[in-house]
Design a protein around this nucleic acid. Structure first.
Lengths: 144, 144
DNA sequence: CCAATCCTGACTGAAACAGTAGTGTTTGGT
DNA sequence: ACCAAACACTACTGTTTCAGTCAGGATTGG
């Protein structure tokens, strides 16, 4: 339930990958420069994205990263969870979940669970393909 | 967009207040003991709740706290914002909001905004009255 | 008067965040 | 064969936030 710079950078990187993967893999350095993301930090993010099976890596000179699936089949939830860990309520879990309220459940937990579900729904229904399209529209329209 | 123990404790305290405010104000010490919340920490939370106009305080001996409004008119969003500050997207704001994407807007921001809106909606539609009712149901049903 | 209670501010240990640094490994190009 | 470009891995660090504590002051019922 906590979103950090990892998600922000990671999503930007994935959008960039999705929109510029016509000719071979894209290097982390290029993404770093184009999206203004610290290079070494971005490298770490790709570790998570690769382990989650979202991107494939090509090592060596002229290497880089590419999406492992079609943009339509990659949603934001997968990216966020690859970088931040499972999306769960940060409150009312672990030991507290057993003690709050008298007995085994508390009304507060229901709210946190609803909140988590709502977040999950938003992230799950947002695909990379959609975001690339949206970004293209933004880019084609001159700044006001 | 970041929920901490403040919200957890604060909501538990408010639910407790709502369900046991028949005879005068309730002391922070009682809530602390009944809900297993560190006493001094709880006191700090009440500062925020009072400043937000959610509870009224009675000083001196036999003093304590009481809801400032009817439970039907207090929602979780108000409580959370009183304790954690405004509920905004923690990513893609401030300076970054102006630079990510080329020009003035990025597709990523749209997702974070949708997420924030979804959270806000959940918290806004959950009232204290509802939670008290839910808690009563839980309590009346013996633990399995 | 005094004990209970709220009020205020400073302080602290631990964890998380946001990187940085250094080194290794793989591979295309020459 | 060599070198530079690129990914891979580990460790380290300064800053901030979290969660809670500590010490005292102000107010009021009995």
């Amino acid at each position: 339930m906590r979103l950090t710079a990892k998600s922000e950078y990671g999503l930007l990187a994935m959008i960039y990958l999705a929109s510029s993967s016509e000719d071979g893999p894209v290097s982390a350095r290029e993404i770093s420069e184009q999206q203004e993301i610290p290079a070494k930090f971005l490298e770490q993010l790709f570790v998570g994205l690769r382990q989650a099976g979202l991107v494939s890596a090509v090592r060596g000179a002229r290497g880089g990263f590419a999406l492992a699936h079609a943009p339509e089949n990659i949603n934001v939830l997968a990216i966020v969870e690859a970088l931040e860990g499972p999306l769960v309520a940060t409150v009312c879990e672990g030991d507290r979940g057993l003690t709050c309220g008298r007995g085994g459940a508390c009304a507060a937990a229901a709210v946190w669970n609803r909140a988590t579900a709502a977040l999950r729904d938003v992230f799950e229904s947002a695909t990379l393909a959609e975001l690339v399209t949206a970004q293209d529209v933004i880019d084609s329209r001159p700044t006001v």
